[in-house]
Design a protein around this nucleic acid. Structure first.
Lengths: 203, 203
DNA sequence: GTCTATATTCTGATAGAC
DNA sequence: GTCTATCAGAATATAGAC
């Protein structure tokens, strides 16, 4: 269970409020006053604890990104799971995560596009390429005599999981009518995506 | 070939500049001064021709969205092409489009998330469901005795095409090192995506 | 229609009391 | 550490001359 707001230090309260506001509105649209209000305190304290709006954003951005990446570390570096289990776990984990934090994917995509300077060197360049999952993919492709870069299958998996969430408003506009239909669709995909990934890997 | 800037009316010049600035920076980060500068004229003219920044954005947003959708209309409603040809055409068309207008997808995803009120009723609710492509998908699934919503395959196709582009900065951070590698990857996908889609449709 | 100058509001940041 | 009050600059919008 999440910690109660009242248990948090002032600094933590601000960071938590900033995370919420920045993640839902992005850097430019967020107002420092919104963050102060959300934290239940005065605007001046933001600049007392953090030097500026930019500094605060940088912290939120890095934490959001690391939160997102940590799932990759945990799941894709697990040497005890098979490639099929990894695909299952990845799909379920990220669908759960995005249902819980629906604004996270678009926030990260935007932040990286506009502010990638912030994290120069902060990310492990080869986190993907060195993973156990990537090794297993390579073996599997070799076994099936496929001359395709394993990275394609990582991209396919994340694409099929994440894209429908970020395109949700468009989907609602052109193909669905109720929120429940979208959730139903994503729960269908929870089972379908692993099947599809395994199929294109081996057929 | 695109029309020369000098041939455009003042109103068109502003709209063109607004499209460029809004599409690359989004509504909140865009400055009306940037737009005026980009159009090579004075700030006051923006408010003379369009009432406000919001109105101008609304126009740009709808035009961008319709530009994106028009490809769907053209390709997915073509009754002379087979389902396989449609998948090939869709992949090539949208990869070409996004290479030409790389900021368009993220702009649309953001705009729809934050400003979907702007286009209430402006979009054909069933543009996807009524398409010839959707009928062909339905037949194909029936032929292969699959009880899966055809919409999933539309989502899969667009996901595998568009997602790598919007995640390009992340990909560059965790798996690639040169821009040329990304372009190479997308050109590989140009051939691979149709194969994958047809495989999961039939296997 | 187009420009310069200016009004008005918003916003990030700070000064200074407590 | 926290608050109130306020500053300085930015940004949108408009007035008014040409």
């Amino acid at each position: 269970m999440a910690k109660q707001k009242k248990d948090l230090s002032t600094e933590e309260k601000i960071k938590e409020a900033a995370r919420k506001v920045f993640t839902s509105k992005g850097f430019a649209a967020a107002r420092t006053r919104d963050i102060a209000d959300e934290a239940g305190m005065n605007l001046a304290l933001l600049n007392y604890y953090f030097r500026s709006k930019e500094k605060l954003f940088e912290i939120v951005m890095i934490e959001n990104l690391l939160h997102f990446i940590s799932g990759i570390q945990t799941l894709l570096y697990d040497t005890t799971t098979s490639i099929d289990e990894k695909i299952d776990n990845l799909t379920n984990y990220y669908i759960d995560q995005i249902i819980e934090y629906p604004d996270l994917p678009l926030f990260i995509l935007n932040a990286l596009k506009s502010n990638s300077k912030f994290l120069k060197g902060k990310l492990n360049k080869n986190i993907m390429l060195n993973s156990h999952f990537m090794q297993q993919l390579q073996e599997e492709l070799k076994k099936n005599k496929k001359k395709i870069k394993p990275l394609h299958f990582v991209i396919n998996t994340f694409s099929m999981i994440i894209f429908p969430f970020v395109a949700r408003p468009l989907l609602m506009e052109v193909a669905l009518s109720k929120d429940a239909e979208f959730i139903e669709l994503m729960n269908e995909r929870r089972k379908l995506i692993p099947v599809w990934i395994k199929t294109i890997l081996r057929s």
